[in-house]
């Protein structure tokens, strides 16, 4: 079977994301990458834990963080994780337009999350004078949370690019692995966020 063959319900394999050799390689390679990402974020978490008391007489975690916004951000990101599961569900059922719709909802929720984060940073910098340079705590905080925000931005660009690029192509065995892997990346972003809201925000204000 040519990997470029357009799928229809009769020829749809059970796991379209791993039906071709290229798909299998992408799948494995991407999980390798996620193993590495785990370590990369761990080094940022470790740095944050080591430096979060070094406030240089500036505001500390307890004075800065408000839990309401973090709760909203968590709900947005968690829901976007579910909507991308829905997108993959429709991919497996070979309904391209529904997959696109759910990916679109995922992107909107992701944009909402990013908007909240930008608002939060803006508030810290201009309202509280808490910047990347104000203390070791500031450097560690913005590096860790900002790096996660960078991942969110990259994930959004990735998903939007895939949606636009394949809008007229429809679903086939060539692009199914691409969509699947982008959704894995999106879930991983939520995995990292679970530790950020636990370790940085919740444990910060206790």
């Amino acid at each position: 079977m040519s990997s470029d063959q357009t799928l229809n319900p009769e020829t749809l394999p059970e796991q379209p994301e791993r039906a071709t050799l290229e798909g299998k390689n992408k799948f494995l390679g991407f999980w390798f990458f996620l193993g590495g990402e785990t370590v990369l974020f761990a080094s940022l978490f470790g740095t944050y834990l080591a430096l979060n008391n070094a406030t240089n007489d500036g505001p500390g975690a307890e004075e800065l963080f408000g839990l309401e916004l973090v709760f909203i951000m968590t709900m947005l990101l968690l829901t976007s994780s579910l909507t991308s599961v829905y997108a993959m569900y429709h991919m497996k059922n070979n309904s391209f337009s529904k997959m696109q719709l759910w990916l679109g909802i995922t992107v909107l929720l992701g944009l909402g999350f990013l908007g909240c984060e930008l608002y939060e940073f803006y508030h810290y910098i201009h309202g509280e004078g808490f910047t990347l340079r104000s203390s070791a705590f500031g450097s560690a905080f913005y590096t860790l949370v900002g790096f996660h925000g960078g991942h969110v931005t990259f994930g959004l660009l990735w998903i939007v690019t895939l949606m636009v690029r394949n809008a007229k192509r429809g679903l086939n065995l060539y692009n199914a692995p691409k969509f699947y892997i982008a959704s894995l990346y999106w879930h991983f972003i939520d995995v990292v966020w679970v530790f950020i809201f636990t370790v940085v925000y919740l444990m910060g204000v206790i």
């Binding site: 996620l34 193993g35 590495g36 990402e37 785990t38 370590v39 974020f41 761990a42 080094s43 978490f45 470790g46 740095t47 834990l49 080591a50």
Partner: peptide, 14 residues
């Protein structure tokens, strides 16, 4: 494997 090295990293830095 990643999670194990991640644990070591956080432990070391702490």
């Amino acid at each position: 494997a990643g999670a194990f090295v991640a644990f070591l990293t956080v432990l070391t830095l702490s």
